[in-house]
Structure formats: structure tokens, C-alpha cells
Design a protein around this nucleic acid. Structure first.
Lengths: 220, 220
DNA sequence: ACATGTGAAGTTATTCACAGCC
DNA sequence: GGCTGTGAATAACTTCACATGT
């Protein structure tokens, strides 16, 4: 399999395409055109074709792409062979929101353990996920072979808990906190910073026309 | 003031710089070098200098940048003259997490009203923010002159509620739902899609080295 | 006629390299 | 020597234009 240098943006779009395609499939669609998928994903048709090409998916001239085959092709590229376990650190409102997202229930990613420092939460089961004490992190992550962490703790604890995740074996973190983590090289970090995003929205709402986003659909 | 075409990425970084600078200021720092700020922001020093230049901030040779002046310069660029009101749609776990986060920083952005369809939540006050019925959206947004919305409702309602926000006067949306909204041109939408981001983390955790992120600090 | 696939061109973003300054 | 500011070079990403297939 050739996964030679796929950009982060392409990975994001592929994930989005797949989710859209799963919806289309449920609606009974058997084929999609690149321009249809583009519209649903708020992108351009050429972009869709390039992304799909980059993972080896082919369409039929004049008939578009076969939906189940596409889902399969994207999944073969995005997913690991076996399901990957994920650990959640922080079971506050945000953490519970993460657990409530059933979207990835049937996916290859499963949140297998949650951690919190509040004794009242420990040993509870929320959305099918058990909450452990932070102290148990190394043991649980080793047992479940977890390499992916979601960081949803208060900002003050972010760096400390991130380090605990790393030393427990985590190699990739989805960081919901506004802190920019200082971690050893080789650890992948994706920041979902709502304060930055909100300020961006505020800025481009006040300065329309200068935005990069904002719903534009070039054609071809 | 020349705010001629600042890219979205620069706006994001400026927001981040400011937050970091506020922290440094609280720690008593009076000056920062571009390379210090770069390290804290996980970026490069040249990038920092270019970003700051683009909003007209100047540093002093050999002494770096004056912290309060920098904060001021960035704020003059990012912030509106008066505080901007924000409306939150959806007071589930995610919505409450948003209220908790944003209350934490008393910026020029204030969540002035929240909306939910659950009667049990209506008229409650959470983190200083009152919850209204969805039916009151037009009246409340007009009264508070709100143009920015945060969408944190279940996926099934996302499109519908987004349209209600728009027709109530909102021109920019921070979208936490996994739905790609189909909205009229001129409305700015920023997607914070945790499912996509988690799959991205999973992918690049499994394929290290091909990532764009992952803590690298080139120098100069 | 209309859709895919793709080299080439265009556009945007980042980094290099160095001038100027203290 | 070490820092800022910036033209020039590079890299990354997107779109154009069109060849090809049915």
C-alpha cells in the first residue's frame, strides 16, 4: 500500500467525505459525482477527485464513484487494521460531550477509558466508558494498548496530564485545552482551540470579504 | 488603519500570541523575543515577526518586543471597538463546556444568551448566561445586537438551528457539529469538527514522520 | 454531453538569507 | 553577538485547462 505523503488537510477531507458517504449510503445512494460530494463537503470537485485519487480510489466516467467502494477505499486508507483504543483525560462537561458523540461508535476508534482526578467520578461508567483515577493511567493504557489521548482537562493541568499520557504510552493527542503543549518530538498533537476559533469567527464576521472560508464553491 | 488582507491562519496565531502574552505579562515579563514567543506558540521566530509586522507591531533591536505594547497592538487589530455579543445554541455538555471556557476570559467577546429546546433548561442561568427558548431567538438577538453564534446542538438539528441563527441576524458561526452547513453566501462559518480531528490524530499517530504538525521548531 | 484524471499554472504560506542596528 | 525586518526563494496547496472515456 502506498500512503506516500498525504497532507493533513487531505486526511481531514477524507474523513469528512467518508462520513458524508456513510450518510448517502444510508439514504440508498449507490453512486456520487465528485461535484455532489464537493457541495456536501463545501469544497471543489477537482479537490475531491484529487483527494480520492491520492488514496487510489477510481470513479467511472459518466457514472461517478461507487459509494460502497469509496467508503471502503477511504477506510482502508484511514483506518488501522484493528480498532484503536483512545483514552480520555478529563470528564468535565467537555469530556462528557466527547463521550456522548456516538458518531465514532461504529468506527475503528473507541474511547476505552476515561480519567479524572475527582474521586466522585472514579469508577462511574459514562456512555459505556469507565472512569479511572489518574493514578491508574499507566496500568490501564498498557492493558488496553492505547496510543491515542484526548485532553479535556482544565488549562492548569493540561501540561502535566499530557506528560502523564505520554509516559503511559500515548503517541498522539487531541488537545482541547488552550495550552500549547511542550512535548518530546515524535508525539503528534492536534489542537482544537475554541477560544482562538471564536476570535477568528469574530474577526471575519466583522471583516467580511477578507475571509478564506465563508461558503464559496468554485466550479469544475 | 490598514487591515488589508490578513490570512485566517495569521488571525489564529495572533489570537494565540495575545493569550500567551497576557500570561507572560501576568508573570511580570516586560519584553519578549520573537524566538521566545515562537517556542511558546509552537511556531517559528520568522513567522512570529511576520505576523506581528502584518498588524503594524514593531520590536526593538536587541530588546525584543514590549509586552504591553504588543498586547495592545494585537488587540487593536483583533478586537472590535465595543464588546461583541455571542449567542450559544445548544446547552448540552458541549454548550456548558463553552460557557465555562469563555467565562474564564473576560475579553471583548461575551456570550450574552443561550438557547435550548429543552423546557427544563429554559430560564436557568448557567455561568452567568441565561437560557432562552429557541422561539425567542429573533427577539433576544435583536435586543442584544448579536451577530455571532456558536452551534453546539445535536447533529440532526444543526442545519435548522443554523438557519434560525442566520435569520435572527447572525453573520458568523462557530460550528461544533459534524454537519457541513449549507448557508447563504456572506455568512462566515468556522468548523470545529472533533470527529475529523480525532481521525486525523489517529492517522498521524500511526504514520509518524508524514505529519505536518508534531512539534517541530525550525530556527531563525 | 458530461464526468473523471492529471499536467501545468496559479495562488498562498513558510522559510532562507542577509541587511541594518544596538 | 544577537536581534529585528524583509526581499527572495522555496514549499504547499488549489485551481485551470484539457485529454480521455462512455
Amino acid at each position: 500500500m502506498k500512503d506516500y505523503s498525504i497532507s493533513g488537510k487531505t486526511v481531514e477531507r477524507l474523513s469528512l467525505y467518508r462520513r458524508i458517504l456513510l450518510g448517502r449510503k444510508k439514504d440508498g445512494a449507490t453512486h456520487v459525482y465528485s461535484h455532489e460530494l464537493a457541495e456536501l463537503a463545501c469544497g471543489s470537485a477537482v479537490q475531491v477527485r484529487r483527494d480520492l485519487m491520492s488514496v487510489g480510489c477510481e470513479g467511472h466516467t459518466n457514472r461517478g464513484y461507487d459509494v460502497p467502494a469509496l467508503i471502503d477505499g477511504i477506510s482502508r486508507f484511514l483506518d488501522a487494521a484493528e480498532t484503536q483504543g483512545v483514552a480520555l483525560a478529563g470528564v468535565g462537561n467537555l469530556g462528557r460531550a466527547v463521550l456522548a458523540y456516538v458518531a465514532w461508535r461504529q468506527q475503528k476508534l473507541v474511547v476505552k477509558a476515561a480519567f479524572d482526578s475527582d474521586p466522585a467520578k472514579i469508577d462511574r461508567v459514562i456512555n459505556g466508558c469507565r472512569v479511572y483515577s489518574i493514578d491508574a493511567i499507566s496500568a490501564v493504557l498498557a492493558r488496553e494498548k492505547i496510543m491515542i489521548g484526548i485532553l479535556a482537562v482544565p488549562a492548569e493541568q493540561a501540561q502535566e496530564i499530557a506528560e502523564k499520557l505520554i509516559s503511559a504510552g500515548v503517541r498522539g493527542i487531541l488537545n482541547f485545552t488552550p495550552v500549547r503543549l511542550q512535548l518530546p518530538e515524535g508525539v503528534y498533537v492536534e489542537n482544537l482551540d475554541m477560544t482562538v476559533s471564536l476570535e477568528k469567527v469574530a474577526y471575519f464576521t466583522r471583516h467580511p470579504g477578507t475571509a478564506d472560508g465563508g461558503e464559496v464553491l468554485p466550479e469544475n
